[in-house]
Design a protein around this nucleic acid. Structure first.
Length: 277
DNA sequence: CCCCAGTCCTGCGGGC
DNA sequence: TGCCCGCAGGACTGGG
């Protein structure tokens, strides 16, 4: 579930590790399948100890620790992963601890209940070309209108499905795709290539307003309670969702019941009245 | 290039 | 009470 607003909130709350030095890498064994690590654990154990954490960055849904030798460690939380400097929700799903030295937090943890999250080490000076430019599209928070149209405007895919393609624009997942399209008053099923310029202007504006609003509320913590920022605090944007998870409830704009449909095997929520062509 | 279905994983809640 | 099943979905894979 962590999408751009949740990972950005993680970044802001984990920034106090900047300037700290890594003392030790500790892989936590459990009954669950081991954490997926690229290229492999030995490389991380060899590289990290002694390195100073220079910056904590975010790109799309990835959180990136950039070290003093320009090597970088990217956390990808996927569905249930958390990066924490406080105690985790439980101890049995703790996957990794970095022991830290310095005036700030003593430890940085990666916790993941479902184990879909990944960890990836990048050689010095390579993370931006490999991850940020290679694998991901421009960040959804800062993408320009022209770039948005150039990257998705020609597709026959439904606009909601296209907005979630991380190679085209990075950071929007299932929850915020529905919220953005409601805010933009664009039907989620409309093929990208049938959208008009005014649709793209509204989508571009809604990307900024919805994602920034969600960041202000520190992201969404759904009913399962999983999502927490690095200080183990839940978000509150779930109290401001207009359509996500609200099937059958009245649209906040026109009171028409919100619809739920399935697109690309995922739930989409929208208002059939407000979101018309 | 494009698009779709299947897969990974764990916890939870409904049905019986 | 216990068990089975479906569901949640990000990103990757393989097929057409």
């Amino acid at each position: 579930m962590p999408e751009l607003p949740e990972v950005e909130t993680m970044r802001r709350t984990v920034r106090e590790v900047e300037g700290q030095r890594v003392l030790q890498v500790r892989w936590v064994r459990s009954r669950f399948r081991p954490l997926v690590v690229r290229p492999h654990r030995a490389a991380i154990c060899r590289t990290l100890p002694g390195r100073k954490i220079q910056q904590v960055r975010r790109r799309g849904k990835y959180l990136v620790l950039v070290f003093d030798d320009r090597s970088a460690l990217a956390f990808h939380p996927r569905m249930t992963g958390l990066v924490l400097v406080e105690d985790p929700p439980d101890w049995e799903h703790l996957r990794l601890e970095l022991r830290l030295q310095g005036p700030g937090p003593r430890v940085l943890r990666f916790w993941d209940r479902r184990g879909l999250g990944t960890l990836e080490l990048f050689a010095p000076g390579t993370w931006e070309t490999q991850l940020a430019q290679g694998r991901l599209g421009p960040d959804a928070l800062t993408i320009s209108l022209g770039e948005l149209r150039r990257r998705v405007g020609h597709l026959r895919a439904p606009v909601k499905v296209a907005l979630m393609d991380q190679q085209r624009l990075a950071g929007v997942g299932n929850l915020y795709a529905s919220e953005v399209l409601f805010q933009a008053r664009v039907p989620p099923t409309l093929p990208c290539c049938r959208l008009e310029p005014h649709h793209w202007r509204r989508i571009h504006r809604a990307l900024r307003t919805v994602l920034e609003e969600a960041i202000r509320y520190e992201g969404s913590t759904l009913a399962d309670g999983t999502y927490r920022n690095a200080l183990n605090r839940p978000g509150s944007y779930q109290n401001h969702h207009r359509v996500y998870g609200r099937a059958g409830q009245p649209c906040p704009r026109c009171k028409t019941p919100i619809c739920r449909i399935v697109q690309a095997q995922r739930s989409t929520f929208f208002c059939p009245q407000c979101q018309k062509v």
